[in-house]
Design a protein around this nucleic acid. Sequence first.
DNA 1: GAGTTTGAAACT
DNA 2: CAGTTTCAAACTC
Length: 736
Amino acid sequence: MQDSPLFNFINNLSPIKPSKHLPFTHTFNSLTFSSPPSLFTSPHVNESRFLKRHISLHTPKTNASAKHVDKKYANEEALPNSTELRQNTKQGIPIADDAIELPQSLKYNCGSPGYDSTFCIHAANGLLELPKEPALDVTCVQEEGCKTDSVQSESPLRGTCPIDPKSEFPECGWDGLIPDHTDLLIFNSPDEARAFNSLFQKPLDSSTDLMSLLPQSTVVNIGHNVQFIDSIAPRSELEIENQHSHPIAATETDHVVDNAAMNSNPNEKTDDELVSVMHRGLRRRCLDFEMASVRRKNSDYNSNTSSSTLHSDGRNVADDNQLVHTKHHSDSRKCILPGIGLHLNALATLKDHNGIKTERLSSGRQLSLICSTSSLKISTSQEHHHLALGDVSSEREIDLSNNGVQPDEDCREDLNQNSPKKKRQVQLLLTMLMRKSDSAGETEGCKRCNCKKSKCLKLYCECFAAGVYCIEPCSCQDCFNQAIHEDTVLQTRKQIESRNPLAFAPKVIRSSESVPEVGDDPNKTPASARHKRGCNCKKSSCLKKYCECFQGGVGCSISCRCEGCKNAFGRKDGSALIEAEQEEETEAGERGVAEKDLQKTEIQNIEDHSDSALVSSPSLRSRSLLPLPFSSKGKPPRSFVTTISGSALFASSSQKLEKPNSLWSQSKHFETVLDDELLDILSIDSSPVVCVKTSSPNGKRISSPKCGLGPSSSRRGGRKLILQSIPSFPSLTNQQ
DNA sequence: GAGTTTGAAACT
DNA sequence: CAGTTTCAAACTC
């Protein structure tokens, strides 16, 4: 009958095709809906769900919903606190279950154990806002998120990431959030991928408050996707760091990753946690003054968040992210917004946590633009720690730093899981690290002021001068150099800067014309590194740390007004130590305290450098006999910025250098005074590369494997990317 | 740990 | 800009 002409005629007239000629599944195929991935344990969503949801995406009701949400947020605080938001979300108010007819299957799915419905709803709803092509079906990602991080949506940390991207970083977009990694997601069709990309690549409308536009959980969802991506393709932390160079990305992913670490079963540590722990902990006390006012905007929100959130491990997670912290906080980390600020206490953190605290470069890259070069240096110095850890323990990084409270024991325990040999190595390394960090971090490198009258708001205060907040170990009195007095600090700082724009600039600068790094001309003298103003010593003969030149490990220059200069690093008249020493040796009768110090420091210096060949710079190397002032006691300068090496980058744009730090010198010290024991440990599986602190032609400070405890940072699997992925330090010309 | 010395920072 | 005072680190005992 179907072959009859009449039937053919009718068939041609009718758009309806005989169903029997079409596979049943064709309908869905045409809609590019595929069955849900089998990886979901929760009941699979009926395909009708997609269809229904897909349709719902186009409904005007969706827009109404979005407007409703937007309007609601507009009527509230720009950044409603997490508690409020959670309440709202739990009540489904802003997210409006009613706004979108959530398919029953979806609801059921989200209601399954470990499934957070609000998150799913929010996520689904939030995604409605961004892509112009609602055909995007991010079910895969979403469900993965819902399934694995259901708690996350309820997690207090969600409230820690409400940084208004617009206000905080107007220039940023989402593209940095997941750069070129959306392809890692599983999409059912190219349209989905495109739409998903559009989700993140959509430039932020400057007139749009993203946070109000998106339900907060959407933000979580975004970060969540990042996490998902990370879990798909684990990368080295620095590679992720590069992603975090994007402010938002740093923030979002930080929080998300932190969340992952928190919510995950301790026994189920993943690379996500690895990333997480890498990014946690070193945010300590950052006087990112430039960001102060901005961050202050969010302080209320964060404080609210922090006050209402308690991490599963008993630690107030929000402390990691809150902007306000006090000197007396038990864990005086100041975790700032994306940005590392000045982590001059980085090593102190190592110490404070009684063990290994891996870096939290994460947030830093981008903000370091704003904050200071010293932060970069610090980050780099932290990298040494981290690299070392990563190298030695490879996959153990998670365990090394997972527990921010007492990582030490955990580290050891986890490390014990390695082979006995490696275990021993790692334990020794940890011991060394802790010892070094104790000596370097507590006593010196980490600013610990003792101000009594200056309120730590003058350059007298080393903390303030270094651009860091005072912390608990400080013995200062009436300290105002705290985050809670951010306004005062900022104001004071500006006042000082108005008086002296370079007040917070590194005191020791390297002239741009000579950047003798290892590999360049080792015969160059460090004469190019000079104190920016020169000293004014009268009695110390520039042989004690009273002298800033000496303290900074640089010779006196013509700008110095010192009297009787005997600076071991170079006298004002241009003579250097060796010459001076020869003179002094010939002058047998002039052996005084100065020479004694010289000899002492010389010996120390030789001890420190001869075997390990650890040199901080070609300058020092070329003058191996030159004593480092901090070497005499195994201490770095206390309040000095020793931009001897690797700092040419910063010095070249020193006009905007701010927040001198001692960690650079500290790290230098750290590197230069590494014990042979540690070196032996590190050399077990490392090539006998002479440890030199090198710098790339661009001024990048690159540590050779042995430097900074990182024997094989570029040789171990995932860690290989660490060195390679060290991004170029951002141009400082972008600083404020 | 207390007291002294020193020189930078701050002030006038 | 110079002189003085204040200040806190460095140093000594």
